[in-house]
């Protein structure tokens, strides 16, 4: 409804240009809240981190927690799991990545992964498959003890979410 038209464009009158510009600025400013309201709201952002207590997780156990609506695997690895992961030659990997790059320094036994198969999004099953990691029942992808894909059709390793150790016995994911 705010029709800014110059009847004679050859006039290039400052007043008309000023009015049109101010009008355009106003329209943009009015449009922003309408667009921004679809962004995650404060209550969603508040739940964007999950704190997990690691104390109850036994050695060798995989625990699944919910984070941002998705499953996250927390794997308390045994020394054998870690050695197995470190023994693999990077050239043999579909998505080469060192195990050290997928864990926090000094906390090698803790593996935190987003539990969503990188093929089409199913949730892989833990402690299964010939690589001792995860097996995805949908199309047969296999992951190792570092969550790296060893047999497809998945193209990428299981994602490591952003996380920090808020203390020696708890992590904050996201």
């Amino acid at each position: 409804m705010t029709v800014e038209t110059t009847a004679e464009p050859s006039r290039r009158d400052f007043l008309y240009i000023a009015t049109a510009t101010v009008g355009a600025v106003g329209a943009a400013a009015a449009a922003w809240p309408l667009i921004n309201q679809m962004n995650p709201d404060a209550s969603v952002l508040a739940l964007s981190s999950a704190e997990v207590d690691l104390k109850p997780i036994a050695v060798g156990q995989i625990v699944t927690v919910k984070w941002r609506g998705k499953p996250v695997f927390i794997f308390h690895r045994t020394k054998r799991d870690i050695d197995e992961a470190r023994a693999v030659k990077l050239a043999d990997l579909i998505d080469p990545q060192a195990d050290e790059a997928r864990v926090k320094k000094g906390k090698d036994e803790w593996l935190v992964l987003v539990g969503v198969c990188t093929h089409l999004g199913c949730i892989p099953l833990g402690h299964q498959g010939q690589y001792d990691g995860w097996f995805c029942p949908c199309h047969g992808s296999l992951y190792d003890t570092s969550g790296r894909v060893r047999r497809g059709p998945a193209p990428l390793n299981l994602e490591v979410p952003p996380y920090e150790f808020s203390s020696d016995t708890s992590v904050k994911i996201g």
Partner: peptide, 17 residues
């Protein structure tokens, strides 16, 4: 402030037209 300025500009534009 914006609306008052904009109203002023529109008024002047309308008068000129």
């Amino acid at each position: 402030v914006f609306l008052v300025i904009f109203a002023g500009l529109l008024y002047l534009t309308k008068k000129k037209i």
